[in-house]
Design a protein around this nucleic acid. Structure first.
Lengths: 346, 346
DNA sequence: GATATGTATGAAAATGATTTCAGAGGAGTA
DNA sequence: TACTCCTCTGAAATCATTTTCATACATATC
């Protein structure tokens, strides 16, 4: 409440009758100090609970020990989980994370990038947002590259022409899991509710979905490929309503993420369709929502701990200027729960 | 990718043929500079996209422009939403937020507090966690006070003896809303699933719940007051299972938060009980989960934007050493949705 | 005993900003 | 003309660290 004077290395040095260099050496262990002086300094450090000023340290070492992380919406459990794992992993290496929430506002994104430069964050992590665009917005890429010019950037998407590292879910492999699961349950009339077709991840999922259908000799039906521009429950709800208008309804629905699945299930509930008895639902991300729905959702799962570790590993290597691949891939697993059942459609 | 040399105020000064003081004055507007020199400096700033080093600035001004925020679990939408609002509001005043996720690990809490001191964050915000204990752990309070000694702390709970500011939900008023809503629907056999009875918020809810029942002349039944130590869906599930074993079941259930309500609804679904036809459910927090459940949950809502603003307002005043109340209160509203209906119990 | 080697130490520089202080020069006044 | 007053400017101090460099002293080597 009262703003006590915070100690400095000088205060310690004075009271211990040594130079600041010696105190610094005791703190960091960067060089040997005689037993006698070390004792004296350590005692004072404990006595006053001295914590060195990280700003001065950062300034002198030109290392802030801070990472900047930008997410579109921290309320989305997918982002929150990934943030948590990144924070946990980065903490092991002494890094703190500044979190910026962009709400997909492009102006804010730029503002935040500039702030991060000012802060001298050692790297920028960008999760979600405009980093997965199919058609590259050159102006945006230039903005990003201007930053990447001085600070390494690690993204979870794929941004053509941008000078950054990617740690990214393999949407093909993930979709293979989904399709094989549905095939194994006897489904052939499968719809897919995608997100914005401007994003790589949606496009890639559709692509694999079609490949898989072709491979099995199942006809691809355009009316089963439906999408919305937002990855939320309202989008899923609207799409599902449209699917339910079809004369020949699908027996299974793939949703681009849990949010979308949740919305779709609401539309089904309203129409009196039971999951999975009448229709199966499967989605991607396996967030906390998958577990709380009734029935519990079958969803593609990513091992978020590994995901976070891979992001931080990439960050650290980039900071140290180590050579490494520009694109790394996350492999998915399937968390089979209660929302998929055998095909009951005749 | 390539770590370009980052410019300093000296580089600009040299190229502009002025002193660093002049550049600083142009950057901050702290004093007048002749039109001619200002032009020259501003041109160079734009040309090189110069961003002043925030660490140096922080060091020299002894103001980091960073706030530290500690939450128990950022995956919990309640915390995530509150964080988001704080971040949004703090951003207006030029502050960035370092987020630490404690997962309720006491060791981590201490580590993080120390880290924040080192970082010279201007204030600490602590949301959830061990800041709402009924029985005060003096050792913990001492830890907190050691920090509060040099940095203001704002918490969302109530920690007796701790030298910090509180911005806190009025559990009594919130519970009044809940009880009145249920009464107005004709419910009298009302159960309450609480969280840990070691926390103020649970104790206060029980207290008001009993007061309200007494006021209406309804007998208080111990078997309707059930609780679990964790504020999650598993706890809600177990508690509800026990409630369902009762011969005389309640007609309405109050859950301590949305997570708990979700768990309770799962237990109901498994027992074939329909919500709200057979039993009503109401909860606190009105997170995103309340909206995605089927049926949608009726839940106590907090106006998170105001909540965040009040926290940041308190933080800023504390930083500036302004006088202010130690305890501020958040008033709730009720978001009535589909999980409560008229009492059907005979 | 003279020289080489090594270790502990402190003074001082560097990190990159802000701010204080003093001085230069111009304008206004008696 | 001499004085004050004001504005603009830069040199230097400050913030709190780390790190380099030089030195003092002890030990080892021939």
């Amino acid at each position: 409440m009262n703003q006590n004077k915070i100690m400095t290395i000088y205060d310690i040095a004075q009271e211990a009758n040594v130079s600041v260099a010696t105190v610094s050496r005791v703190m960091t262990g960067s060089a040997k100090v005689s037993e006698e002086k070390r004792e004296k300094v350590e005692t004072l450090i404990r006595k006053y609970d001295f914590k060195p000023n990280a700003l001065a340290k950062g300034l002198s070492e030109t290392k802030s020990k801070i990472l900047g992380i930008m997410v579109a919406d921290i309320r989305n459990p997918f982002y929150a989980t990934l943030f948590m794992e990144c924070e946990k992993e980065a903490g092991k290496y002494g890094y703190s994370l500044i979190l910026y929430n962009t709400l997909s506002n492009p102006d804010l994104e730029v503002t935040y990038l500039e702030k991060m430069i000012s802060m001298r964050v050692e790297a920028v992590i960008k999760i979600g947002g405009r980093i997965d665009d199919v058609v590259t917005d050159m102006e945006y890429v230039e903005q990003v590259n201007k930053v990447a010019n001085s600070i390494p950037i690690v993204i979870t998407g794929k941004l053509d022409g941008a000078d950054c590292y990617s740690v990214r879910i393999d949407a093909f492999q993930a979709t293979d899991l989904v399709m094989e699961h549905l095939f194994s349950l006897g489904h052939t009339d499968i719809a897919m509710i995608g997100g914005s077709t401007d994003t790589q991840s949606t496009v890639e999922r559709y692509m694999r979905y079609k490949q898989q259908l072709r491979r099995r000799g199942i006809q691809i039906r355009d009316e089963y490929m439906i999408h919305h521009d937002y990855y939320d429950d309202r989008g899923g709800y609207e799409c599902m309503k449209n699917l339910l208008l079809l004369e020949d309804r699908p027996s299974a629905v793939i949703a681009v993420n849990d949010f979308t699945a949740v919305g779709a299930m609401r539309a089904m509930a309203e129409a009196g369709i039971r999951v999975p008895n009448d229709m199966s639902v499967i989605s991607y991300d396996d967030t906390i929502m998958a577990n709380i729905m009734i029935p519990k959702l079958t969803s593609v799962s990513y091992n978020y701990e590994n995901f976070g570790q891979m992001i931080i590993e990439t960050v650290l290597k980039a900071i140290n200027g180590e050579e490494q691949p520009r694109l790394k891939t996350i492999i998915s697993e399937l968390s089979a729960r209660d929302s998929c059942g055998p095909c009951t459609k005749k």
